[in-house]
Design a protein around this nucleic acid. Structure first.
Ligand SMILES: [Mn+2]
Ligand SMILES: [Mn+2]
Ligand SMILES: [Zn+2]
Ligand SMILES: [Zn+2]
Lengths: 150, 150
DNA sequence: TTATTATTGAGAATATATACCATCTCTTAA
DNA sequence: TTAAGAGATGGTATATATTCTCAATAATAA
């Protein structure tokens, strides 16, 4: 009762998406999403990295909750899950500006470059249609060796 | 000494590839490769599935050796390693007839269809060249829902 | 304010894959 | 044909990534 914040009706895109589904807007969920928003697009973080970054910013969230939250944010369409290489999944912010894009990955050092290709997206569309599948997403991973690692 | 086979010089593509590298042709390695050859192209098996299939054909090979052998056969260019979805890597026979191809995967039931696309391969080539990377391989995974699962 | 129930944190449990090591066996060279 | 040497195997322990369990907590709606 020392703060009036508990009486305010807080509205946010995340909160709205959660509430209309019987889910709750928690500080942990906000922290995870804010991390991705602050770090900007083009960053591909693992669950472990999200965990470490939040600890460094003195906003500890348990690792179990990080995993739960990443899955939730992917389901909500706010994050994108990637399988770039070994060492588990990675996640990146999914924004309207950042169109569907693909990844060129150095198998030696992990350096990752992004690129777009309408031809690739179209190939995925065609393959789905031809087989009567309902398309969800296409992702092209190009495994290669970067100039520094050759 | 009951059999003369120990005096025969046995030659095989697998054996040759192994011997010129100081490696050995073992029954276990033959069993794993034969399984893929017998089952034919277009099958995507996990290490666990290879293990089970060999046990069923009364040719048990330890799981540790399965993992070692799959890695070896990939290095030798006889198998191809796939990351279709959850549940670990899968492997398929790599033959000359089976050109580079891509996969359309049902995220509900796992059904997988294969397709080819020169446009996709070209997009990978271009992306590598533009960034000065040495291309290894491009793989397009199309996540979708199959007719049975819609 | 209170009741409801989703969510969290901590650690156990699971899944996939690799490491270790004693034992075995494929190869090559006597 | 034999034997030495190096590579391979099997069984198990370990590593890593992720999920599960459950009691305690806290967001939401009434
Ligand atoms: Mn990206
Ligand atoms: Mn295939
Ligand atoms: Zn590199
Ligand atoms: Zn399906």
């Amino acid at each position: 009762m020392t703060l009036s914040s508990q009486y305010q009706v807080i509205t946010s895109p995340l909160g709205d998406g959660l509430h209309k589904d019987g889910k709750r807007l928690t500080p942990q969920r906000l922290k995870v999403l804010n991390l991705f928003e602050n770090i900007g697009a083009g960053n591909h973080l693992s669950a472990e990295e999200v965990h470490e970054k939040l600890i460094k910013s003195s906003s500890k969230v348990s690792l179990a909750t990080i995993y739960r939250t990443l899955r939730l944010l992917v389901q909500m369409g706010l994050l994108h899950e990637l399988e770039l290489s070994e060492g588990g999944h990675r996640y990146e912010l999914l924004s309207n500006e950042t169109a569907d894009h693909h990844h060129l990955i150095c198998i030696r050092c992990g350096r990752t470059e992004e690129f777009e290709s309408d031809e690739v997206l179209n190939a995925g569309k065609v393959a789905a249609k031809v087989n009567g599948f309902k398309l969800i997403e296409s992702s092209l991973n190009v495994r290669a060796i970067c100039p520094n690692c050759i």
